[in-house]
Amino acid sequence: MDMVDIKIYKKMDYFTIDIDISFEGGILVIQGESGAGKTTLLDCIAGLKSPDMGSISIGDRILYSSEKSINLPVKDRNIGYLFQSYALFPHMSVMDNVLYGLKSRKIKDFSYAEKVLDSFGIHHIKDKLPSNISGGEKQRTALARAIATRPALLLLDEPFSALDRDTKASVYEEFVSFKENFHMDTILITHDEKEAKLLGDRIIHLKDGKVIG
């Protein structure tokens, strides 16, 4: 477990994101209403957007530092990102989706990915296209894809918001066992207070780009 250190300052249209968070291990939940700057925060950590100022580091690896003029490209950050819409590649099978990150990084050993597929219970649908699987299966495939490359940090953007209530209940349980099995430093953002309490080791509240508790 490495210390994750995030200091981000970024001017938005209606407010300024000004955040200073550190955490080590487990799941940090960032809770806030929509439009509080949650997704922008994740995008900055992943490198999809650039802060105006600040620094982002995991252990002694600096991903971004305005002071030292460091801004690692997204592909070199090794951060897993589960998008709210899952963003599963529609023309690739479940298996090809999960292996995409490994092949991009020219990793030939698929044993960990196979283990992930097994433990997520999606091995039997590995040849199916995303359009032919259920919402819960899509969510698990997207999570499997995000962690198959063993990222240093996992970002989850409202990972359960697209699921219906019944599916949600079982997915929560799976998520708790995932957390125990995979021990991955994770930032999860949600607007759902119940979800935050259920899943987070630590919860912070975000409003208009600032931590309010």
Partner: peptide, 9 residues
């Protein structure tokens, strides 16, 4: 974006 986070050039 997803492909970029997965390390693709």
């Amino acid at each position: 974006k997803a492909a970029r986070t997965l390390g693709a050039s």
